[in-house]
């Protein structure tokens, strides 16, 4: 398992291939890439992510440990970039490896849902009109909260 917090651009395909070359007991891998989005009706020119790296590494390491144990993953990796990026560039990559697909999917979703609200990154969107800090989304909180509901806790 590994955590990488970096200002360097990364290649999701190359990261995936390196991750997949892992373990013969794995029957399923899920990889998620989060990209800089620019809505056609409200385009941005760049997205800057501010980060508190020491805390990010601690928080993401705790999350990975929890996901590994909870979903019995074989491996998990989180890569999160910070600094200034342009639309289409990857921001985050989450990868999970498990014996079967259900655990790999659930583990990746769990990591992303928690990462959104619990990892110290802050998005600043820049457009021709100026720069605006992105507000936290209520549905990010509810996405995280569902992992605490008893009905889904056994996934």
């Amino acid at each position: 398992m590994s955590v990488r917090v970096t200002t360097e651009a990364f290649d999701p395909g190359a990261e995936t291939n390196a991750f997949l070359a892992g373990d013969q007991g794995a029957g399923a891998a899920v990889t998620f890439s989060g990209l800089v989005r620019s809505r056609p009706d409200d385009p941005i020119t760049s997205l800057t992510l501010e980060c508190y790296p020491d805390l990010a590494i601690n928080q993401l390491s705790v999350l990975i440990d929890e996901a590994m144990a909870r979903f019995e993953l074989i491996a998990a990796t989180i890569i999160h970039r910070y600094g200034t990026m342009t639309p289409g560039e990857p921001i985050v990559q989450v990868m999970t490896l498990a014996p079967h697909r259900a655990a790999a999917f659930a583990g990746a979703q769990f990591l992303m849902d928690y990462l959104k609200t619990d990892a110290p990154f802050w998005k600043l969107e820049t457009s021709p009109a100026g720069s605006v800090w992105v507000a936290p989304r209520d549905d990010d909180d509810s996405a995280r909260a569902r992992w605490e509901e008893p009905a889904l806790a056994s996934i």
Binding site: I91, K116, W122, K123, P136
Partner: peptide, 10 residues
């Protein structure tokens, strides 16, 4: 000690 707004990563 660090202070910051709610996080918006991912």
């Amino acid at each position: 000690v660090a202070f910051f707004p709610p996080m918006t990563g991912g």
